[in-house]
Design a protein around this nucleic acid. Sequence first.
DNA 1: GGTAGACCTGGACGC
DNA 2: GCGTCCAGGTCTACC
Length: 331
Amino acid sequence: MAIAPAVPGSRLRLRTPEDYDLPRDVCSYGYFLLAPNDWSPADQAFRTTLDLTTASAERQATTVVVRQPSGRGGELVCRFDRMLDRAQQTQARARLTRMLRLDESREALKAFHRVDPRWRRSGRGRLFRSPTMFEDVIKTITSCNVAWPNTINMNERLCEVLGSKSPSGFHAFPSPAKLARTRPGTLRGRCRVGYRDTRIIAIAKLFKQGSLSENDIAAPSRTSEEVYKDLLALPGVGPYAAANIMQLLGRYDRLALDTESVRHGRSTLGFTGEPPQVLKMLEAHYDAFGAQRFRSYWLELWDDYEARRGPAHTWERETTGRTFTSVQLRD
DNA sequence: GGTAGACCTGGACGC
DNA sequence: GCGTCCAGGTCTACC
């Protein structure tokens, strides 16, 4: 990909935790391969497009390229394709911090590595996510009941059809307001989301109205059980999706188990039996990792993908990025 | 509480 | 090129 923005604009510097490693920490969860995100293996740089609001309440899409010139622990240099005002700079910092998990300190990771020392040497533990909870929820819904290449297609189309365009010509992920006023037929016909159309619109309306927000649903005072129950009540969100959204919110005490998990249980852990039995074995197996169980499970699975396909920071979105899952490997 | 079938897309496969 | 089958998680109706 052409990673550099075609149009010059603002430049921001972001401080990182002392062990932060951009290639390792971006290429740690499949969403780094979903539009509007892109990773350049050649440049070891991350590009995305954000929808930011100016001080005068105007929405503008801007494409940003993030690099870590001095390597692990060094600051991130973010080049945008338009000049950002102060309000936009504040939003951009907050959104990049969320995506890249810059707010997860080295001490927080050490707590995980004490529970599961297998990842201490590599330093793994930060899992990439979206700039907003809304985008994480919609991306999770587009990953349900489909093969991974179809999830890639849905996110590309959502951005191309409904996302604002940056000066460089890339599209941001559509906002809750935009999706809330989109007709089901448009989502189904042009974005190819199928029966997810009305569920996506219903969730967009909840975010737009403010009746669903990350601050409220995931407040630190709330128990994981409370968060899980609230997520399960959302249209299109079942046990898998709710557990996955929880890990994206930074709560790792539930396993998001799907057919990939069953394959992993059989092929790597040697479990046998029908899927329900294998799922029970997986729950029992990862019980030992307590509040960190999802991360232990996920890094094991990710490690397996990388053993087969090479380090994720070498994957091209259009080739390995489409075919790294077990179902693709099996085929 | 457990189970069966519909939902929808895209890819594989057979003809 | 066309038709059929299948995988994938959620939801609803039914027992």
